[in-house]
C-alpha cells in the first residue's frame, strides 16, 4: 500500500514564535522541527505500512528549505520525502497549502493520505478536508483509532459526545488526533539511515499550482492580560483560602 503522510516543519514551540513586522507572517528560522502532532501521523503510517508491506512517503511544504524536521520523520522509519520548497509560497494560507500538498500526493500516487488534525503553529484545522476535496476522496477526520483491511479503512471519529465508527473504501484521507497512537522514538540506526534517504524537491510551478493570496493580516495588537491574583504556598491550610474565595463569590 502506498501511504502518503503529510508533515509540517515548524519553529520550535519551546521558543515563542515571532511575527515579521511587515506581513505579520511567522518568522521561520532555518532550523525548524517536526510538528509534534505529526509524529502521530508518521507512526500511524508506519504501522499500516508494516501491516501491508507498504511504503511511507512524506509530503511537506516548507518554504525555508530546512530539512531537520523531515529527517526526524525519516529517522522514525518513513521511506522517502517530497518537499515543496518555493519562495513564492511564503505566507501561504490553508487553501494554497492544500493545493500544493494534494498536487504533490497526486503526482506520486496514493492509496491513503494521513495527516494530523491541525498544526501547532497555524491550527486552522481545514487542510485535510481541503485535500480530500481536491483529491476527490472521503476525509475520515478526527480519527483516534483506525484499521485497514481489504481496501477499506475504518476509524473511530471523535464527536462532541463520544465517537462514531466510520468506514470507507480506499483511497481516502485520514486525519488523526494527537492521541491516536504513541509515536515511536527514532533509533540510532534510524537516525543514521535518515541521512541518506531520498528527499525530492519540487516548486509550485512543477506542480502546476499558482499561489493565491486570499487574506491579509492588517493589524496585530497586544491584548490586555488578565491580572494575576494571589499566589499562596501551601502550608497545610491553603485549602481554607479556596473555601474563603468560594464563599466570597457565593458558590457555597
Amino acid at each position: 500500500m502506498n501511504i502518503a503522510v503529510c508533515v509540517k516543519q515548524i519553529p520550535d514551540p519551546a521558543t515563542p514564535y515571532e511575527l515579521d513586522g511587515e506581513n505579520h507572517w511567522v518568522v521561520r528560522p532555518n532550523d525548524q522541527v517536526l510538528d509534534d502532532t505529526d509524529r502521530v501521523g508518521v507512526e500511524v503510517g508506519l504501522q499500516l505500512a508494516e501491516a501491508t508491506e507498504g511504503t511511507v512517503t512524506l509530503f511537506s511544504m516548507s518554504p525555508s528549505g530546512s530539512l531537520q524536521g523531515i529527517r526526524q520523520a525519516l529517522a522514525m522509519g518513513a521511506d522517502k520525502a517530497v518537499l515543496v520548497d518555493d519562495e513564492d509560497l511564503k505566507g501561504s494560507d490553508a487553501l494554497t497549502t492544500a493545493r500544493i500538498l494534494s498536487a504533490a500526493v497526486q503526482r506520486e500516487g496514493f492509496d491513503l493520505v494521513i495527516t494530523g488534525t491541525e498544526s501547532t503553529d497555524g491550527y486552522s484545522g481545514v487542510v485535510p478536508q481541503m485535500m480530500s476535496e481536491l483529491l476527490d476522496v472521503p476525509c475520515l477526520s478526527f480519527a483516534r483509532g483506525f484499521s485497514v483491511a481489504d481496501d477499506t479503512v475504518t476509524i473511530e471519529r471523535q464527536t462532541a459526545s463520544g465517537y462514531e465508527t466510520v468506514t470507507s473504501p480506499l483511497p481516502a484521507v485520514v486525519a488523526v488526533t494527537a492521541g491516536a497512537v504513541e509515536p515511536r522514538y527514532p533509533t540510532f540506526k534510524g537516525i543514521m539511515q535518515a541521512k541518506s534517504k531520498p528527499v525530492d524537491t519540487a516548486t509550485a510551478a512543477d506542480l502546476g499550482v499558482e499561489p493565491v493570496v486570499t487574506q491579509a493580516v492588517i493589524a496585530v495588537e497586544p491584548v490586555a492580560s488578565r491580572a494575576a491574583g494571589e499566589l499562596v504556598e501551601d502550608d497545610g491550610e491553603a485549602y481554607l483560602k479556596i473555601v474563603e474565595l468560594l464563599e466570597e463569590v457565593k458558590v457555597i
Binding site: L140, T159, T165
Partner: peptide, 14 residues
C-alpha cells in the same frame, strides 16, 4: 467517490 464514507455506529460516552 468523495461521499464513500459511512457512519456504521454511534457511541455516546456520557
Amino acid at each position: 467517490r468523495s461521499g464513500g464514507a459511512t457512519i456504521t455506529e454511534r457511541h455516546v460516552e456520557a
